[in-house]
Amino acid sequence: TQTTHELTIPNNLIGCIIGRQGANINEIRQMSGAQIKIANPVEGSSGRQVTITGSAASISLAQYLINARLSSE
Rank of each mutant, 00 (worst) to 15 (best):
S45K: 14
N11T: 07
I38K: 02
T1A: 09
N12T: 10
A56G: 10
L61F: 10
C16T: 15
L70P: 03
Y64F: 06
T4Y: 12
I18M: 03
A68K: 15
S32C: 07
A39D: 13
V50W: 00
V42R: 11
S55N: 11
G22S: 12
Q63L: 14
S46W: 08
I18G: 03
E6F: 09
T51L: 11
L13W: 06
A57P: 11
I59S: 05
N12M: 05
I14W: 02
A56Y: 06
S46D: 15
T1P: 08
Y64C: 15
T4R: 08
A23C: 13
T1V: 13
R48H: 08
G15K: 09
N11S: 09
L65M: 05
G47A: 12
I52G: 00
T4F: 07
G47V: 12
S60R: 12
M31P: 00
I59R: 05
S58C: 06
K37M: 10
I25D: 00
A34V: 01
S71C: 13
I59G: 02
N26G: 06
I66E: 00
G15T: 11
N67L: 07
G15E: 10
N24Y: 12
Q2A: 07
S60V: 05
T8L: 11
V42Y: 08
H5E: 10
S45I: 09
A23F: 13
Q21D: 08
R48N: 04
I25C: 00
G44R: 06
T3Y: 06
E27L: 06
Q2Y: 14
Q21Y: 06
H5T: 14
G33Q: 07
E27W: 08
I52M: 06
I52N: 01
Q63V: 11
L70G: 01
G19K: 07
E27M: 12
G47S: 13
Q21L: 04
R29I: 09
N67I: 07
S32E: 01
S72F: 07
R69T: 10
T51F: 10
S45A: 12
Q2N: 15
I36P: 00
T8P: 04
A62L: 00
T53D: 03
E6R: 15
T3R: 15
T8D: 15
M31Q: 14
I59C: 14
Q21S: 09
L70Q: 00
G47N: 13
R69K: 15
G33K: 05
G15H: 10
G47E: 14
H5M: 15
T4W: 05
I36F: 03
I18T: 06
L7I: 11
V50M: 07
G47M: 13
R48T: 08
A23H: 14
G47I: 04
G33Y: 00
S60D: 15
I28F: 02
S60H: 13
I59F: 00
S55Y: 08
N12P: 07
A34K: 00
L13K: 14
E43L: 11
K37A: 09
L7A: 03
N24M: 13
T1D: 15
G15V: 03
H5Q: 15
A68G: 08
L7R: 05
K37E: 12
A57K: 14
L13Q: 15
A39K: 10
Q49D: 06
R29S: 10
I52Q: 00
R48S: 07
L65R: 02
I25G: 03
L65K: 04
G22H: 08
N67Q: 05
I28D: 03
I59D: 03
Y64D: 15
I14Q: 02
L70V: 10
I66H: 15
I52R: 00
N11A: 10
H5K: 14
L7H: 01
A56P: 13
M31K: 15
L70M: 06
L70C: 14
T1H: 08
S45L: 12
G22Q: 06
E27N: 14
S32Y: 03
R29Y: 03
L65Y: 09
N26V: 05
A23L: 06
I38C: 01
Q30P: 01
R48C: 08
Q63N: 12
V50C: 08
H5A: 15
I14K: 01
Q35K: 14
I9M: 05
I17A: 02
E73M: 15
E27I: 07
L70T: 05
S45C: 12
I28P: 00
S45R: 08
L7T: 04
A39F: 04
S46A: 11
L70S: 02
P10N: 00
C16F: 11
R69G: 02
S58F: 08
C16K: 14
S46N: 14
N40I: 03
P41N: 06
E73R: 11
S32G: 01
N24G: 11
Q35C: 08
I9W: 01
K37H: 06
S46G: 11
A62D: 02
H5P: 02
I38G: 02
V42F: 05
T53Y: 08
L13N: 06
A39W: 10
G44E: 06
N26Y: 00
N11P: 05
G47C: 09
A62Y: 04
S71A: 11
R48Q: 06
Q49I: 11
R48Y: 13
E27H: 09
P41G: 09
A34W: 01
A68W: 03
R69F: 15
S46Y: 08
E27V: 06
E73F: 15
I66Q: 00
A57L: 05
N11F: 10
T3W: 08
P41K: 12
R69Q: 11
I14D: 01
Y64A: 15
G33E: 03
G44K: 06
T51R: 10
Y64Q: 15
L61H: 15
T8V: 15
I25K: 01
V42S: 11
G54Y: 00
I14Y: 00
S72M: 10
I14E: 01
E27C: 07
I9V: 14
I17G: 03
V42D: 11
I28Q: 02
N11K: 07
N67D: 14
T51C: 13
Q49T: 11
S72R: 15
G44M: 05
L7D: 02
C16R: 15
R48D: 02
E43S: 11
S71Q: 07
G33P: 00
S55F: 03
T1G: 11
N11D: 15
V42K: 11
N40W: 03
I28S: 00
S60T: 12
S60K: 10
A68I: 05
M31I: 07
N12L: 05
T53C: 08
E43V: 14
S71N: 11
P41D: 09
G44C: 07
E6C: 15
V42M: 06
Q35T: 12
N26K: 14
I59M: 03
I18D: 04
S58T: 06
S45P: 04
Y64P: 05
S55V: 04
L65F: 06
A56D: 11
Y64I: 05
A62N: 01
L65S: 03
R20K: 13
P10R: 03
A62G: 02
N12Q: 12
T4M: 07
E43G: 08
L61P: 00
N40Q: 14
E73A: 14
G15Q: 07
Q21F: 06
N24Q: 12
Q35F: 06
Q49A: 12
Q49R: 13
S72N: 15
I66S: 02
I9G: 01
V42G: 08
S60A: 10
S46C: 11
V50H: 02
N26H: 07
G22P: 03
L70I: 06
M31A: 13
E73L: 12
G33T: 03
I9H: 11
S32L: 02
L61G: 03
C16G: 08
E43A: 06
G19N: 02
H5I: 14
T1W: 05
I18Y: 03
G47D: 13
T3Q: 14
A39Q: 10
